[in-house]
């Protein structure tokens, strides 16, 4: 293992972390503020990816694709909130899980009806194709650097929104005491719809970004959703800062685990195939071990939500 390889893996970890953050930011708001478990969050990610893929194929421009995908994902998110989920806020978590699981099936089938069962092709926009040799001997895809940059910008914007704006203030207030907020004459229903749309928009953005590097396929949201739940539990439910730190932590642990654990174990075990097998098993558990450790010492996650 060289220092350069370590650097490259750290970049990979950041890139994974940033993708997770985009997913987690929306989910943690919905979970933390509305106390609502939304399994269909992954569906917004899938919708973002499919719309971006479809539009960029039709127009020939990836950027138009992303630009269309964002409002569509947000609109679908708000429609789902108004039509279905609004009725579930007061219900048990299990009811919410069941209902939003039903939504996953619905959206998967709908996607299959509209775009067919096969995965779609999305090309990397020509501006960002190719790679740069930031680290000697390891050309790094420009597109992955763009994802890191875009994710960090979104994190900054989110922070500004939450800390500096009136909507952000209401979001924080809603998180700590929703009855009081509505007693003060704030239209809490509208606030919730906005938060939900914002979450769906971020998930759609993650999906649109994922298109060129990952498979745009039915059920793509479920894979990332599990990781996202780990992120918000580690980070602290309802906290944007927690989502960012949690996402980066999960990205680091997952990537380092996959990258270095097998080599490390080869020094311990004599038979390399045993080392590889054990390494693969432990590294796929690594993020859950991280989650368990965090929960032992900080049962409410690393950062508690406002209030």
């Amino acid at each position: 293992m060289t220092f350069y390889l370590f650097l490259e893996q750290t970049l990979n970890a950041f890139q994974l972390g940033v993708m997770l953050f985009l997913m987690a930011a929306g989910l943690t708001l919905v979970f933390g503020i509305m106390n609502m478990i939304n399994l269909a969050h992954g569906s917004f990610y899938m919708i973002g990816a499919y719309v971006a893929a479809y539009v960029s194929d039709a127009t020939g421009s990836f950027f138009i694709g992303v630009a269309v995908a964002l409002p569509v994902a947000a609109a679908v998110g708000m429609a789902v909130e108004i039509i279905a989920l609004r009725r579930l806020y007061k219900r048990d978590h299990l009811d919410q899980v069941l209902a939003t699981f039903g939504l996953i099936l619905f959206f998967n089938e709908l996607t299959s009806i509209i775009w067919g069962p096969q995965a779609l092709f999305v090309a990397i926009p020509p501006v960002f194709s190719g790679s740069v040799e930031l680290i000697p001997g390891a050309p790094y895809p420009i597109y992955r650097l763009v994802i890191i940059g875009a994710g960090l910008i979104v994190a900054l914007l989110m922070r500004t929104l939450i800390v500096k704006t009136r909507t952000g203030m209401l979001i924080r207030a809603g998180a700590s005491n929703r009855e009081m907020v509505s007693a003060l004459g704030i239209d809490i229903d509208r606030l919730y719809t906005i938060i939900f749309g914002l979450g769906a928009l971020l998930a759609g953005l993650a999906g649109a970004f994922a298109g060129p590097i990952l498979a745009t396929e039915i059920g793509m949201g479920e894979n990332i959703l599990i990781l996202t739940f780990v992120v918000i539990i580690v980070g602290g439910i309802g906290s944007i800062r927690g989502a960012l730190i949690g996402a980066l932590l999960v990205g680091l642990v997952d990537t380092y685990g996959r990258a270095f654990l097998p080599q490390f174990l080869r020094m311990i075990f004599e038979d390399p195939s045993v080392a590889d097998g054990v390494g693969a098993s432990i590294s796929s558990m690594s993020i859950y071990i991280l989650m368990a450790v965090v929960l032992i010492f900080r049962p409410r996650g690393l950062f508690q939500a406002y209030g």
């Binding site: 893996q9 990979n12 994974l16 990258a259």
Partner: peptide
């Protein structure tokens, strides 16, 4: 879904 770590190795 992501193989960046494996590819670097």
């Amino acid at each position: 879904v992501d193989y960046a770590a494996e590819l670097a190795n």
